[in-house]
Design a protein around this nucleic acid. Structure first.
Lengths: 125, 125
DNA sequence: CAGGATCCAAAACGATACTG
DNA sequence: CAGTATCGTTTTGGATCCTG
């Protein structure tokens, strides 16, 4: 299902591989998953719990990442089954970027919260 | 490093400020807008054309960014009206991060494209 | 030109139920 | 445990019309 659902205007770099890669990183779950996998292989339900996301969505996100060669899926045929996800070498290149994003987020979170309050206070109906 | 079941850091739970900031940066338009504004103030329709997005969506994205104190809106009461958007000082802190993201995207785009083709070929229904 | 208002289509999400 | 299938809901984006 996650084939090529993209079809937008052809501007700037839209449609180019670089923009697609950018949009992948900017995807809603990519950064969170990458951050979670940074510490090593992680099981499906662990991931699910950490991100607070439904199995449905997580499965699809992981499949998309696997498709892009950023994440590897490893099946251990035990009983019960164990499946671990880990960053590929390519996926590992996201780590520094993700770390930057996270650092930025922590740094500006308070300021953003303040700005938002101010905005809401002034822009009330 | 491997085999160490450290669960030291629980990922940011949904609702925390840091995660919210992270999700804002990971938002679909934030990075693209930040990148466009990096070169200086830009007009609404310029932005619109560069991103290839509808006025509606752009307006909403810009308003959200303005609310978070990342972007400033400047109105020039000329005829016709001119409105320019620019990064605030807070918003400017996104630039290094965005640059990193973009650099990463360009670097891995070919590999991702290849991985995707391979995946699709092997996983063809 | 810059956007709000409205309506509509498509995508994303979540909950539940079910399978290997 | 690790998913898939189905369904209903929510979110998101686009198109069109309209205003200052």
């Amino acid at each position: 299902m996650s084939g090529t659902p993209r079809r937008e205007a052809e501007i700037y770099g839209a449609g180019t591989p670089a923009r697609e890669a950018m949009e992948r990183l900017a995807g809603r779950w990519t950064v969170l998953i990458a951050h979670a996998l940074e510490d090593g292989p992680t099981r499906f339900n662990d991931l699910r719990h950490q991100l607070g996301v439904s199995a449905q969505v997580l499965a699809r996100a992981l499949r998309d990442l696997e498709r892009d060669g950023l994440v590897a899926r490893r099946l251990y045929p035990e009983v019960p089954v164990r499946v671990e996800y880990e960053l590929t070498e390519l996926g590992g290149t996201m780590c520094p970027v993700v770390r930057e994003i996270r650092r930025w987020a922590e740094e500006v979170a308070p300021a953003i919260g303040e700005a938002r309050e101010t905005y809401d206070r002034n822009h009330r109906s």
